[in-house]
């Protein structure tokens, strides 16, 4: 699980162009949307694409994102339970 969390942080930093942010700067349990990393709606869509591209997870409703992207840990748990690749 910890390995997946680290990989996920690296992927988030890359796809969202979070310059000057390192994996260790991202709290495993901090909210991704709003306060935590301060991601916006386009970032959320980009994370949905990341789930499909890297893990074969098809998120049909953007509203599901609110649950999935509560934190990196929640996101990693969701990937572990639903990944197809």
């Amino acid at each position: 699980m910890e390995h997946l969390i680290l990989r996920l942080k690296e992927e988030i930093i890359e796809v969202l162009n979070l310059e000057d942010i390192k994996p260790e700067d991202i709290d495993d349990n901090a909210p991704l949307i709003g306060d935590g990393l301060g991601l916006d709606s386009i970032d959320v869509l980009e994370l949905i694409v990341l789930l499909g591209k890297n893990y074969g997870i098809n998120v049909k409703e953007a509203s599901q994102g609110r649950e999935i992207f509560q934190s990196v840990r929640v996101m990693a748990e969701y990937i572990r339970a639903n990944r197809t690749k």
């Binding site: 796809v15 969202l16 162009n17 386009i42 970032d43 869509l45 980009e46 694409v49 499909g52 591209k53």
Partner: peptide, 11 residues
């Protein structure tokens, strides 16, 4: 076969 439109590029 690798169709993943990027929202952040599209905007």
């Amino acid at each position: 076969d690798n169709y993943f439109p990027s929202p952040s590029v599209f905007v």
